[in-house]
Design a protein around this nucleic acid. Structure first.
Lengths: 262, 262
DNA sequence: CGTGGCTTAGTGGCTGAGCCACTCATTCAC
DNA sequence: GTGAATGAGTGGCTCAGCCACTAAGCCACG
């Protein structure tokens, strides 16, 4: 049988964090304003103050609020204070995917990917080359579902980032790709064409192996631009399917997509 | 008087988070192993379990551990699971600055800066140009301390990132620059030479204004490479001063550097 | 002899009540 | 005026306890 992913964890604090995060991102609280006092907010949400505090501290770490002793929880401007860990939450909102933000993300992935490929080609360490070749080899195996191809493509790019030798880049990539882990299925449709993926990545690997930065960047950009179009399209189709399912009422909850909880 | 930054917040949860984070980053717990049970750990640290939980949830959000109901807190590999929000903590460790990580950070800043400048020049929106010019104008004013120049230089680059029109890039920059806010003084020495900064950034602005991506990238890289050398040197000198102060014993705690708590 | 249900120990999730500490605006003494 | 004292409002932290989940061992049933 399929290797099921574990069910998504939904603790009370998760739910609280999501609810408050969405409200803040929706602009329900003005920047610089304070949230209601903890005791009040906890009462209103029917949860214990301790649980609420856990959620608030998460929001603080996300850069959405600043909790100040004796003052309250001040709402911040994410554009000023939030870090890359917010990307996933900005793209995947409660009411669906934010298309404009997804475009930004795809553009960022493309441009950064080109930069990473260039840098990897300049470095060209043998250990890194082996790590790049492994997922590409596996991409030739049978059977190979779109989900498998997607996983291997991701692995290739993670190896590419590591091949730059810069750990900051790896962390940046982790922040960007944290989306994929939880919502990979939304983009699965972009990975049907295995031949295209394999041939494109082969060209990247060759260029990196040859120590040809310009060619590595060019080949990577070429792939990522096309892949970006497909990711965008896949997300659009996914949204339409979600919408259609929504119209059929209870089917939405009963669909039973694995690895998801409503 | 100086515009003091608010005192760094040092709550119990902060201290706990720092202590545990450092222990994990030092490799005191093996990857995949579990931390001691919450009750035990709280007892050992002489704090309440609730406070410890707050700290553990922060570590989970940093990608250092995974808290699992019924199992325990599993230590993860930061290279796999941590995002850019960890950068600041990797560079600034309890026992000083991690020089290798700082090198990575400076390299990342340089390469990304070049990319951002190129993209900004391609976009070339008039609002963004105004936002770029403002800090540069102010850089010509008197009096101007190194700290002021540092602040304005940072503001210029933040404006440059915004000028790319890509919000993901802004978040990435926030993650990188979160260091500056708290530890700017470590790098202050790199901003003595105002003329160099001003002339370099003028060249960047001109290229962006002219819509010349190649030149914008070139000028930015030129500046950031030199600036990177100075940042590195400033950090090195700072570390030596710290070391010397440490040898004089209590002076370390009594020095009373503003905005810091030991 | 394996399958599935039950039990139990160990772990994190969450609660409610309460007190401490910080901030700010007001008040009051000088 | 100026500055200290006050008090209301807010978050910080603790305590004690119960609930819920996980894994492992046991046992009855087929």
């Amino acid at each position: 049988m399929d290797d099921l992913e574990p069910l998504e964890k939904r603790t009370l604090v998760d739910l609280l964090t999501t609810k408050l995060r969405e409200e803040i991102l929706d602009g329900r609280y003005a920047k610089g304003a304070t949230l209601p006092p903890e005791r009040e907010l906890a009462d209103a949400l029917r949860v214990n103050r301790t649980s609420l505090k856990h959620a608030l501290m998460r929001l603080e770490q996300l850069g959405l609020i600043a909790i100040r002793h004796g003052i309250g929880s001040v709402v911040l401007d994410p554009a000023e204070s939030a870090g890359m860990e917010l990307v996933a939450h900005l793209v995947f909102r409660a009411d669906g995917i934010d298309a404009a933000m997804l475009d930004d993300l795809i553009e960022a992935r493309t441009l950064l990917g080109g930069l990473f490929a260039r840098r990897a080609a300049e470095r060209r360490s043998s250990a890194a080359l082996a790590a790049l070749a492994a997922p590409l080899d596996e991409l030739g195996r049978e059977p190979m579902s779109a989900a498998d191809a997607q996983r291997l493509e991701l692995e290739f790019f993670r190896a590419l980032v590591r091949a730059t030798g810069n750990r900051i880049f790896s962390l940046a990539a982790n922040s960007m790709y944290s989306i994929y882990r939880a919502r990979a299925h939304v983009f699965e449709g972009a990975f049907d064409d295995r031949a295209f993926i394999r041939e494109s990545l082969e060209r990247v690997l060759s260029a990196v192996r040859d120590g040809a930065p310009d060619e590595a960047e060019r080949a990577t950009l070429e792939y990522l631009k096309e892949n970006g179009r497909r990711l965008s399209k896949s997300a659009r189709l996914h949204a339409e399917r979600e919408h259609a399912a929504g119209q059929r009422g209870l089917l939405r909850a009963a669909r039973g997509r694995r690895g998801r909880v409503s």
